[in-house]
Design a protein around this nucleic acid. Structure first.
Length: 480
RNA sequence: GGCACCAUGGCCGAGAGGUUAGGCUAAGGUCUGCAAAACCUUAUACAGUAGUUCGAAUCUACUUGGUGCCUCCA
């Protein structure tokens, strides 16, 4: 076993957005990994799309831990933002109260998905001094300019002297925009320049006093500052959703290269998770098509009548598509996942029922399946392939249960370990027993069924069948 | 315009060179008063064209159709 893990550790391939190809994963410092993921902005509940990203990086975190890497996982909390600052009441307590509420909700959702806590969840508001210092550094190097108390990053100067803004995307269109006139802010020299410090003197919100003005730091400087503080100025993995590639991640890189006086582009591997779409449109606030995990769990959608959708079904559903592909939200797909979930997670019950033979099994090579599973994950975290393989192994368990295959005590133990390692430890799934119907309906239906039975006694089959048809959506009736 | 991505059966959805994904549905069977449920069996497939290969749904090129991003966003 140990040598399998040892081997797996050395054969991880990651699609690096920076290079736009799969690369062998070699940590900067031997066994240590630093991973930074852009966390939530606490101005609304997190939706299913947000969850996808966090669930995916949780699997990464679990996997690296499983491989005995010494991993430090940082996920920041953006608790300040120019846009939502405005929407809150002017009183500070109200602002903090809202932030606290959203943070609690955020944690609650991640808990029901059984996500591990990152090593640290640093907040933007706790790192104001560090951010101001970083802005000072950029100003000193004359790669930023002041305008009406706000500080802007100067992309043109940056591109001439240090870097190549737009490197991650290699987006030529950026330069077309570059030439366009500023229509977002008259304060900017160029359209691509982004704010490092925003003067908000006139608006009554939470803000800080500096030499330049009273205001708040820009969004991008927060991530650069926090990741550098806790992971150093060059770390292994930087993750986030694809929609953050531009401008957020480009800005982070630009800032980091200036502050650290290098061209490391902040992190060695950049990983981007794709979007969750609905009707092939991106889930976003502006389109008002957000879906929240609780809506599904609490049965807002009529996916199925007999089961409550538990969070792990949703989790499995989100993991069933490769992270670089978009998922189009579909109730049917979730419905399909229910069976997959039950089948897979039932394997432990099945294993208990199997009577192992003394003679060793002839056909089952469990080591091979272990390697197969590790290989799946190692190929750019191909979790769908992993799940496919686990379904295969589950079929073997079925065959053992039906005595179509003989299995030795030793092999059974190994197969149990395999399922535990991949389903529970790495994917972070749990078995939750299904609830057939809600209590209220249960009582109501029971009463109707009583009447129906009386009808059947009187051989009024026509009416009893009618009732059964009506109830068919809520309960399946088995007559003896 | 640029940069990406996608195309799988009646439907939803995996699969990344050879061997059953899975589910829904349909047909047949077991069971049964009829159904339902359960179980068993069976069925239909990889957008098109060319290439690489002993072998392509899978790799390459082109074509067609569709989508996303380029503006706060996971």
């Amino acid at each position: 076993m140990k040598e399998i893990i040892y081997k797996a550790k050395k054969e991880i391939y990651i699609y690096n957005t920076l290079k736009r190809r799969k690369e062998l994963f070699i940590p900067i410092n031997k066994n240590k990994i630093g991973m930074y993921v852009c966390g939530p902005t606490l101005y609304k509940r997190i939706h299913l799309g947000n969850c996808r990203t966090f669930i995916f990086f949780d699997v990464l975190y679990r996997y690296f831990k499983h491989l005995k890497f010494n991993i430090k996982y940082i996920r920041n909390i953006t608790d300040i933002n120019y846009n939502f600052n405005n929407s809150f009441d002017n009183k500070y307590y109200s602002y903090f109260y809202k932030i606290k509420t959203y943070y609690r909700k955020f944690n609650k959702i991640l808990n029901i998905f059984n996500l591990l806590s990152p090593n640290l969840e640093p907040r933007t508001t706790s790192h104001i001094i560090e951010q101001i210092n970083n802005i000072k550094k950029i100003l000193k190097l004359k790669l930023a300019y002041k305008k009406n108390g706000s500080i802007y990053f100067d992309i043109e100067k940056y591109n001439n002297n240090i870097g190549n803004y737009g490197k991650i995307l290699n987006n030529i269109n950026i330069y077309n925009q570059f030439k366009q006139k500023n229509y977002f802010s008259k304060e900017k020299k160029n359209n691509l320049d982004f704010v490092l410090w925003k003067n908000l003197k006139s608006i009554k919100i939470i803000k800080w006093k500096t030499l330049w003005s009273t205001g708040i730091p820009g969004w991008h400087i927060g991530c650069t500052t926090i990741s550098n503080k806790y992971l150093g100025n060059y770390f292994d993995i930087h993750g986030g959703g694809v929609d953050l590639k531009l401008p957020h991640h480009e800005c982070e890189i630009a800032q980091a290269n200036v502050i650290n006086n290098n061209r490391n582009n902040l992190a060695k591997y950049w990983i981007h998770t794709n979007m969750l779409t609905i009707n092939n449109k991106k889930m976003s606030k502006s389109l008002n098509n957000l879906i929240f995990p609780y809506d599904i769990i609490k049965g807002k959608f009529k996916i199925t009548n007999n089961y409550e959708i538990n969070p792990f079904i949703i989790k499995l559903y989100l993991l069933q598509t490769h992270y670089r592909k978009p998922i189009n939200f579909s109730l049917k797909a979730i419905k399909n996942t229910i069976k997959t979930y039950i089948n897979l997670l039932n394997c432990f019950k099945k294993i208990k029922k199997i009577h192992p033979k003394k003679t060793s099994s002839n056909n089952i090579n469990i080591k091979y399946y272990f390697i197969l599973c590790y290989k799946s994950i190692n190929d750019d975290f191909n979790i769908p392939l992993l799940i496919y393989n686990l379904i295969k192994i589950n079929k073997i368990i079925d065959k053992c249960l039906n005595n179509e295959l003989k299995i030795s005590f030793y092999d059974l133990k190994k197969i149990k370990k395999l399922m535990k390692v991949f389903l529970i430890d790495i994917l972070g799934l749990k078995y939750l027993s299904r609830k057939l119907y809600k209590k209220k309906i249960k009582v109501f239906i029971k009463k109707i069924l009583k009447i129906r039975n009386e009808m059947r006694k009187q051989k009024l089959y026509y009416y009893s069948d009618k009732i059964r048809n009506i109830l068919k959506n809520y309960v399946s009736i088995k007559d003896k």
